[in-house]
Computed example of a mutant assay.
Amino acid sequence: MQRLGKLAAAETQMVMLTATLPPSEEDELFRRMYVEREQVALFRAATARTNVAYRVIKVGKEMKKKEVGEIVLGMVRQKLRKHKQGKVVVYGNSVAKVKELAQKLDCHAYHHKAVGKASMLEDFAAGRKRVIVATSALGMGVDIPDIRCIVHIDWPFTVLDYAQESGRAGRDGLRSEAVIIVQEGQQRPAEDKREEVEQRLVGAYVEGVDGAATCRRVVLDGYLDRRETERVACKKGEEKCDVCRGADDEEEEEGESEEEEGGSEESSVN
């Protein structure tokens, strides 16, 4: 990016395109591109996808690793049954956890050290494997249209990471889901001030602003687009998040799962 900034010396028009540039990073971009804010005509569209239903499932901090793993397996298998023709991506923060879950799901484990990542994506895109478990190595540049559900099984590192990874869902415009399954009290400690800020934002998304239930889109829009003053809930035409659906969330899940093994999912598991 720093080298691209030298294009400013050409003194001609430039168009810069990015999928996820938070307003807080705009000044840094302009600095690196050697332009002043008043020289830029900025066009910004909503980052969060209107066709994705966002949801968080919190499990009790006293639960054992095996119990949490069973909840994750049940969730992934339920989503594969629900989306019979679609695909599911599961994100984990550690290679060990990704490998372990992939083995149980009989699918590929995609991470930065994995051998044959290109063939893994080919299998996944072609539907030979309808689920893939990955670290953040599977991120930008993946444009598979029929991914119906993204499942995070750890606390996201940042809201930006989550926006990019959950944005793999519903690229064809059809109804899709982005689900986080997190264990309460298991968010990793921050190593510096910047991480502390990022983790507070993730905490607001997962647990609500100041501990109060908050529409998931309010938090996403507030950080990604600085539109927090424009909404208090999911709007008409958007797939409602679990907070906005409220009691309807559990009722709908029961309707979708009543003929499937495992029954309905709960918004919180103790």
Rank of each mutant, 00 (worst) to 15 (best):
Q2Y: 11
K6T: 14
K6C: 10
A9T: 14
A9K: 15
A10P: 03
T12W: 03
Q13C: 07
L17Y: 01
T18K: 09
T18F: 06
T20D: 08
L21Y: 10
P22A: 10
P23C: 02
E26L: 08
E28C: 00
L29P: 02
F30N: 00
R31Q: 10
R31C: 01
R31W: 00
R31K: 05
Y34T: 05
Y34G: 05
E36M: 04
Q39Y: 07
A41T: 13
L42I: 13
F43T: 00
F43V: 07
T47N: 09
A48N: 09
R49W: 06
R49H: 13
A53I: 05
Y54D: 03
R55C: 11
R55P: 01
V56T: 14
I57G: 00
I57K: 01
G60I: 03
E62L: 09
M63T: 05
V68F: 08
G69H: 07
I71M: 02
V72I: 15
V76C: 06
Q78F: 02
K82I: 03
Q85P: 00
Q85F: 07
Q85E: 10
V88Y: 05
V89W: 04
Y91R: 01
V95M: 00
A96V: 07
K97C: 06
V98Q: 03
K99I: 10
E100A: 11
E100V: 03
A102F: 01
L105G: 01
L105C: 04
D106P: 01
A109N: 03
A109V: 06
Y110E: 01
H111I: 05
A114N: 04
V115G: 09
V115H: 10
G116N: 05
K117R: 15
K117W: 01
S119I: 07
S119G: 08
E122K: 10
D123N: 13
D123I: 05
F124W: 06
F124Q: 02
A125E: 15
G127W: 05
G127F: 05
G127C: 08
A134K: 01
T135V: 07
G139E: 02
M140Q: 04
M140L: 02
G141C: 02
G141L: 04
D143A: 09
C149Q: 03
I150V: 15
I150S: 04
H152T: 08
I153V: 15
I153H: 06
D154L: 04
W155I: 08
P156Q: 00
T158Y: 02
T158S: 14
D161F: 03
Y162F: 15
Y162G: 04
A163S: 13
G167E: 02
G170D: 10
R171N: 08
D172H: 12
G173I: 01
E177Y: 10
E177Q: 14
V182P: 02
E184A: 12
G185I: 09
R188Q: 10
K193G: 10
V197H: 12
Q199G: 15
R200W: 11
L201S: 10
V202D: 06
G203H: 14
V206K: 11
E207R: 13
V209E: 14
A213I: 12
R216W: 11
R216I: 12
R217F: 03
V219W: 08
Y223T: 11
L224K: 06
D225I: 07
R226N: 08
R227C: 09
R231L: 13
A233D: 02
E239H: 12
D242L: 04
V243M: 05
A247R: 14
D248E: 15
E250H: 14
E251V: 11
E252R: 12
E254T: 08
E256Y: 11
E259K: 00
N270W: 00
